[in-house]
Amino acid sequence: MVEHRPLRDFIAYAVLSFGIVIFAFPVYVAFIASTYDAATVVSGNLPLTPGRNLLENYYRAVFVGGSRFMNQPVGVLLLNSFISAIGIAVGKIFISILSAFAIVYFRFPFRKTAFWIIFVTLMLPVEVRIYPTYKIVADLHMLDTYAGLILPLIASATGTLLFRQFFMTVPDELLEASRIDGAGPLRFFWDTLLPLSMTTVAALFVIQFIYGWNQYLWPLLITTKDSMQTIVIGIKKMLSTTDELAEWQLAMATAVLAMLPPVAVVVFMQRLFVKGLVETEK
């Protein structure tokens, strides 16, 4: 029986509302700043209501160019970030689910050793192995390419661990039933394991999409053309430290646009994301 305690519920909702305000207010200020001209933004007297330059600022940012320090329109940077994030998320899921499938369902020498070697790579993020990774990418002529943005980041020990733990909870009776029906390993994987893993796939996709979207160091290192740079780099370039005044209204418009894809992914996949993380039986 669920007990209704109005005072406790009120306190919980009040704390939750306060937290939402703290996190949402800076985003709201960024949106408001994106609707005014640069002089109003830097004056220190920014109103809390939208201005008249909303359409002009967003049109200029998306289709014309972010600022005098960034030659490419923000639309191009958003596309680069989207392709990179999708490629990283899909690549990590593809490699992780296949490697976990092999570790759990195949018996081969040094199977556990292979898993622990994969697990140890958690201590070797791209920042640690930045020079050899860059050298290999450069030797393969993948600088300023989508392949160079995506391929070095698609290995995921976290994803392999997540899928391995889930596969170990799948009843052995399903495997035996598939064998009786004459299904091979790939058929068992495609018809049985993959449908059962969809919530785990969704949870991992959300995490890895945001990871790929927020990448800064690696894209900054391997992209020299403005046309191949990502939205995070674009925001940094707009906030130039030269004597010229940064066009803050365009930078704020770009920041607001940069938040929309990750937020959309989280909102539309929220239920699957929560199920994939908290449910032990799919």
Rank of each mutant, 00 (worst) to 15 (best):
R107H: 12
V137M: 12
Y59F: 13
F115L: 02
D181S: 09
G234I: 07
A202G: 03
P109W: 15
G51L: 07
P219G: 01
F106M: 06
A39H: 04
S81G: 05
L260W: 08
F108K: 09
L194N: 01
F189N: 04
R52T: 14
F110P: 12
H141S: 12
D172P: 03
V120H: 05
I97M: 11
P152H: 10
V278W: 13
I83M: 01
L217R: 06
A202R: 00
I118V: 13
F189Q: 07
F82I: 05
V41D: 00
S240P: 07
V267S: 12
E247Y: 10
V232A: 12
S17F: 10
P261C: 03
F31C: 02
R5A: 11
I32L: 02
I154R: 03
T133L: 14
S178Q: 02
L79K: 15
L162D: 00
D37P: 11
N57T: 12
K225G: 01
D37R: 15
V64N: 07
Y131D: 06
L98A: 14
V21R: 06
T145A: 10
L260H: 06
V29H: 08
A203Q: 00
A251K: 04
Q72N: 13
K225D: 02
I118T: 07
S43G: 15
L54K: 11
I93M: 02
F188R: 03
E281D: 08
F25R: 10
A202P: 00
L250I: 14
V201W: 04
D226Q: 12
P195I: 13
I32Y: 02
V267D: 11
V74C: 14
A61P: 02
F119T: 02
V29M: 10
F205C: 03
L194S: 00
F189A: 09
P185D: 00
K92S: 11
R129C: 14
T241M: 13
P261D: 02
P195S: 05
A14V: 11
